[in-house]
Design a protein around this nucleic acid. Sequence first.
DNA 1: TAGTGGTCTAGACCACAGC
DNA 2: CTGTGGTCTAGACCACTAG
Lengths: 237, 237
Amino acid sequence: MTGPLHLKISADLADNIRSGVWPPGHRIPFEHELTARYGCARATAGKAVGALVSAGLVERRRRAGTFVAKPPVQAVVVEIADIRTEVEARGQAYGYELIASRRRLARASGDEARLQAQGPVLEIACRHFADGRPFAAEDRVINLAAAPGIEAADFAREPPGAWLLAHVAWSEAEHRIAAAAADGVLAERLEVAQGHACLVLTRWTWQAGQGVTSVRQTFAAETYQLVARFTPVPFGR
Amino acid sequence: MTGPLHLKISADLADNIRSGVWPPGHRIPFEHELTARYGCARATAGKAVGALVSAGLVERRRRAGTFVAKPPVQAVVVEIADIRTEVEARGQAYGYELIASRRRLARASGDEARLQAQGPVLEIACRHFADGRPFAAEDRVINLAAAPGIEAADFAREPPGAWLLAHVAWSEAEHRIAAAAADGVLAERLEVAQGHACLVLTRWTWQAGQGVTSVRQTFAAETYQLVARFTPVPFGR
DNA sequence: TAGTGGTCTAGACCACAGC
DNA sequence: CTGTGGTCTAGACCACTAG
């Protein structure tokens, strides 16, 4: 192991935890012991331990020491990629089709209710294709007040998600992942039978507390699944 | 804002980013400028910026500075809770039923193939209930070599997931989230019609590179959905 | 109350990417 | 080249808490 010393310390500690040598609840060496063992300053040892804390591997308790945490199988990072990226990553040709787009006033019902938007919104229905076959159906509502400059966008050519990603600043988001049976409209758009099992991703996005967009993306069950890798310890060699 | 100075600095920077004052691509103040502005050492400013890097809010470029990153809507933390916890969090009564359990040799096909286990495994089918109604169907394979002491467990009373959580040390995991239509067996276990849309969670767990368990949990579409909150900036006030 | 982690300082040297 | 971030040191004081 070359490179920064604090990474080597993190990796050494993580090895002992991952391998089970130090089980949950075990006290890892005090920071001053690490300084002695590695011949470093306490700040360096502290940085190494701090990285393990961020990863959720250990917990610090004042006056007591730092202890191996219990494995939280629950916290999982799912990569919900941009659809174009996802399709191209499979080596398939990406395609896009605008189905409908209209301007109207925000409603207080349906997915968009969570946005708490008031005033004009843009309602968009579109499809994404992989190698010419329907990959995802998308229904989106965009709060015009939160998307200045959107009038200049041409959603007949460009997916609204890509435009928003490029033009709206940092935001907060909430996702729901669910299964659902395809209704008549969805079945037609995805070219499957009515009642077909689908994976449904719903996402709401806010920026500085203002609702920006709500979007529902539906995939036929066979075409898509989410993969989540849980790597609690990115310190391996 | 009281407390550690580095948190105040992080919060101040994050505010400018979240609010859109500093759009993606904008260069945030140099670390030496932060030391001047806050009257602190460079290590403190560096720690504040480092936290934003960990959160994915900014990117550092040597010789150039630190820049606001583009919002990666993709990385999402999903809380995949223990089923009992999930049911009880809804205020419903949790129930559990063992359907079948048998010992056999590992196969190189099906979900368990990813474990690359060899030798004896325990194959378990069970159900989880919420208020007496089927909530999830579970099919699990446990690698006996990776679960010492499991012979003493009574899976007629205790769900295998709970036992493993309590008895197996830190592990790596991979999840798949998909939709699927219920086949005959699943339909019966979940008490829904054949072909009913279901949400399927599949999880593989390793410990020190050794396969521990593979498990598939299936939920009727209406009973369960995953919720993910994306809070890119935990530095708000 | 003693010792842990939590935070911070005022320096330093280095690698490296822009200029 | 120059200046940025990347890393590190050898201290220091404080808050908290376990014993």
